[in-house]
């Protein structure tokens, strides 16, 4: 086999007892990065060579309810609030989340033009300069919080626009029709 399966493929994944949530307190979980660059964990004395983290509410509460999963995608437990965890755990999880939910933060919009139903962006982001194309329809924009937008391009890549009104400036009008 050459591809990993996505957890959604598993149909009903047996996450242990289905009714009670296992919350992971700061003492329950220790994390480190493996030589290969992945997260490894120790939970209740059990060594897990690779763990995955998923946000349960990636848009509305990105730093709460973080599901920690083993390499079989079974849930080990949930971190109720990320900021209650140790500094190292927080940092490791944040970097793992930014990998899974990769969405560069737009820092400056150089240009935004509409042409035949597509929006052409030229932006400076936290990851570097990028040009991308977005289909001009409301489904390609997610709202995250009051001030933030997530724009999805034609390849399904995502870009975050915090305080988007200020960020967009004179280009706000171009985006307005699909907001």
């Amino acid at each position: 086999m050459s591809e990993s399966k996505r957890p959604v493929d598993k149909g009903e994944s047996d996450s242990g007892d289905r009714t009670t949530i296992r919350y992971l307190a700061p003492g329950d979980l220790s994390l480190s990065r493996s030589a290969g660059g992945f997260l490894q964990a120790t939970v209740d004395g059990r060594e897990l060579p690779r763990v995955f983290v998923h946000q349960a509410f990636p848009l509305s509460m990105p730093n709460e309810y973080i599901s920690v999963r083993d390499d079989e995608q079974k849930e080990i437990g949930i971190i109720r609030r990320l900021d209650e965890m140790d500094q190292t755990v927080q940092e490791l999880i944040e970097s793992e989340l930014s990998r899974r939910y990769f969405a560069p933060i737009v820092e400056k919009v150089n240009s935004l033009k509409e042409e035949f139903g597509y929006l052409y962006w030229d932006v400076m982001t936290s990851s570097g300069d990028r040009r991308f194309t977005q289909q001009a329809k409301p489904e390609t924009i997610l709202g995250a919080g009051d001030q933030e937008l997530i724009v999805i391009d034609i390849d399904e890549n995502r870009f975050r626009l915090p305080r988007y009104r200020t960020l967009l400036g004179r280009f706000a009008r171009t985006l307005d029709p699909i907001l």
Binding site: M1, S2, S34, G37, F102, R158
Partner: peptide, 30 residues
């Protein structure tokens, strides 16, 4: 094994030997 792991956006190229997994490259959906 050499595998592509899908993320919510894009993915990673991962090599596996035994239980060791190593991240080779990350890429966007493009």
């Amino acid at each position: 094994e050499i595998a592509v792991e899908n993320h919510v956006v894009g993915g990673s190229l991962v090599v596996k030997s035994g239980v060791e997994h190593e991240l080779l490259a990350r890429f966007t959906a493009r």
